[in-house]
Design a protein around this nucleic acid. Structure first.
Lengths: 131, 131
DNA sequence: TAAATATTTTAGCATAATACTAATTTATGG
DNA sequence: CCATAAATTAGTATTATGCTAAAATATTTA
C-alpha cells in the first residue's frame, strides 16, 4: 500500500498524540497546521484505506494503521542512526529521513537494521521498534 | 530546488541517452513510456527550471541540470552501496533507491559517502561521482 | 521544390493530492 | 432547549501527471 507524505505525517501525528485522549478531527487539523476541511479530506482518505477508524469523533489507528506506523518508525530510526553515525546532526538527520521513511520496502530496511547491529534505541532514545 | 519523481526520471533519461546523439522530445517520450504531449509538459517544466535546454529540437542538460544529475547519482550510488552491503540484491537496491535518491540533501549524502569509504565504484561498476 | 511524413505544439479534458473559504449541519454541554 | 463547538459539504484553486485529437512545424524524399 502506497501512502503520500501527508498521509504519513497524519499517521504519525495520530499515533504520537493519542494519549491521554484520542484525537478528534480538529485536533489533527491543529497539530498538522491545516484547516479542518483539509484534515477532513485527508482523514477520509485514511479511513478508506483502512488505516484509521473513527468512533464517536475519536480517531485512532487501525491494526493495519499501527503496522504501517511501526514500519515507518523502523525505517525512520534505522536511517536516522545511519546518518547520525556518519556525523549528520540529529535534527538534520530527522528532517532528511522524514522525507523518505515511508517510501522504502520493509524488507530492505530490516537488512539495514541488522547490519547496524539491531540497536533498540535511536539517537533520540525512542525504541527502534515502536508500537 | 525541489524536483518531482518524474522530473528526476527525465533528467536521468536525458543524461544517460544523449550519446551518440542528443535526444528529441519524441525520444524522451519513448524512453519514458509517455505520450508526446505529456513529455512536452514535463520538458517545459524542466526548461522553466533551467535544468534542460533545447536547441533545434535537441534536448540537453544545462550545467545546472548536470549538477543536479550528479547529485542524484551520488545519492543513488551511495545508498545503493549501503543497501547491497547489507545484503539487499542489486536490482532491489536500485528500485528502492530510485524512490529516494532525489530527495535528500547532498551534505548528508556526502557524509554517508565518506563513512562507507569513498568508493569510486558502485555495485554496477559505474563511478559514484558521475558527470 | 513540392508533396509526404514525422515531430512538435496546442487545446481540451481528466484524475489525484493538497489546500482554502464560506456555509451548513450535527454534536455537545450547560 | 439553546448556545457554542465541531464536523461536514459545497465550491474553488493549484500542481503534477496523463491522455486524445487536431493543428502547426519540420524534415525528408521523390
Amino acid at each position: 500500500m502506497d501512502i503520500t507524505k501527508k498521509e504519513r505525517d497524519c499517521i504519525v501525528v495520530i499515533h504520537d498524540n493519542s494519549k491521554p485522549l484520542p484525537l478528534r478531527l480538529s485536533d489533527v487539523a491543529g497539530l498538522m497546521n491545516i484547516k479542518p476541511p483539509t484534515a477532513h479530506e485527508l482523514i477520509n482518505r485514511l479511513l478508506s484505506k483502512n488505516i484509521i477508524k473513527k468512533e464517536r469523533g475519536m480517531i485512532t489507528l487501525t491494526d493495519y494503521g499501527n503496522e504501517i506506523y511501526s514500519e515507518i518508525m523502523m525505517a525512520h530510526r534505522t536511517l536516522e542512526i545511519i546518518l547520525t553515525r556518519s556525523g549528520v546532526n540529529s535534527d538534520k538527520a530527522c528532517t532528511q529521513v522524514e522525507k523518505v521513511d515511508y517510501l522504502m520496502d520493509t524488507s530492505s530496511i530490516e537488512k539495514l537494521l541488522q547490519t547496524i547491529g539491531n540497536p533498540d534505541k535511536c539517537p533520540h532514545g525512542k525504541p527502534v521498534h515502536a508500537v
